[in-house]
């Protein structure tokens, strides 16, 4: 059949620009600069400075994911209960910041949080004590939550919209109170969206180097910063690739979770 041939360019593209480059990471990650096989680049994750960067990245991205989930679930529930519909202006308002350039959004928080920034300017004007969270892990978490919140809201909102009103009314009729309905009906029915939202927040948060760079100052290093520096500054591609392989383990785990709980792609954001 000639119709299948139409996928030809795509197959070539996927092989040339996705599969081969990924295999190159594996190759670089498992060899020394001279090309001999080694596991040192992967086991380098156990070195204190790398382990610390990975641990901090895991911790901060987990906190951000939980905060996003806690903020987004009530938001998605309210939007769904208002029945405003997917294309409505209210939903649009909550998605819009996502289309603002990612760097500009983070830059804006830097401006707000800085020592002589806007928030401290306002606090000083009101004679209130100033805040000092710029260049701390708290600022990084704030940046992650701000940047990735829409990725949690969208899949949650999409699955919640698919819940039939009758299901909820039935639970109420049978005497369930708000919390029982939440735990027995709302949450179980939104699992695909929750899982999809979690990965959509967790993966970019875990691997970021921009947010930590702009809001964490140069002293707080996440695993993303370490890898980025190996490629752009130290030019130790083998070590950078080895650490990326470790990072990919976490990405694979989250992809498998989605595969397991969101088989039909119900929770996808797009």
């Amino acid at each position: 059949m000639s119709r299948k041939m139409l996928a030809g360019p795509y197959i070539i593209w996927v092989v040339g620009f996705t599969v081969i480059p990924l295999l190159l990471i594996v190759y670089y990650g498992l060899t020394t600069a001279s090309g001999a096989f080694t596991l040192n680049n992967v086991t380098a994750i156990a070195q204190p400075e790398h382990a610390k960067a990975l641990g901090l990245a895991l911790l901060l991205s987990l906190i951000s994911t939980v905060v996003c989930l806690l903020l987004a679930f009530p938001l998605a529930m309210i939007l769904r209960n208002r029945g405003v519909g997917r294309g409505s202006f209210v939903v649009f308002l909550f998605i819009l910041p996502m289309w603002m350039n990612f760097l500009l959004r983070t830059l804006a928080w830097q401006t707000l949080l800085e020592k002589n920034g806007v928030i401290n300017g306002i606090l000083g004007f009101l004679h209130l004590p100033k805040i000092a969270i710029i260049n701390t892990p708290a600022a990084i978490v704030l940046g992650m939550v701000y940047n990735f919140l829409p990725f949690m809201v969208l899949p949650l909102y999409n699955v919640l919209c698919k819940i039939d009103d009758n299901t909820i009314n039935a639970a109420r009729d049978l005497g369930a109170n708000f919390f029982q309905t939440l735990i027995r009906v709302w949450i179980p029915l939104s699992v695909p969206g929750i899982i999809s939202g979690i990965t959509m927040v967790f993966v970019p948060a875990l691997t970021t180097f921009v947010i930590s760079n702009l809001l964490g100052g140069s002293k707080i290093l996440l695993i993303g910063n370490v890898i980025e520096q190996e490629f752009t500054r130290s030019s130790n591609w083998n070590l950078g690739s080895g650490l990326s392989l470790v990072l990919m383990v976490f990405i694979l785990i989250s992809m498998m979770l989605v595969e397991k709980y969101d088989k039909n792609g119900e929770g996808t954001a797009f």
Partner: peptide
């Protein structure tokens, strides 16, 4: 992760 895609393309 975008960082992995970016690195892999650069190496490619």
């Amino acid at each position: 992760a975008e960082i992995v895609t970016g690195i892999s393309l650069m190496l490619g």
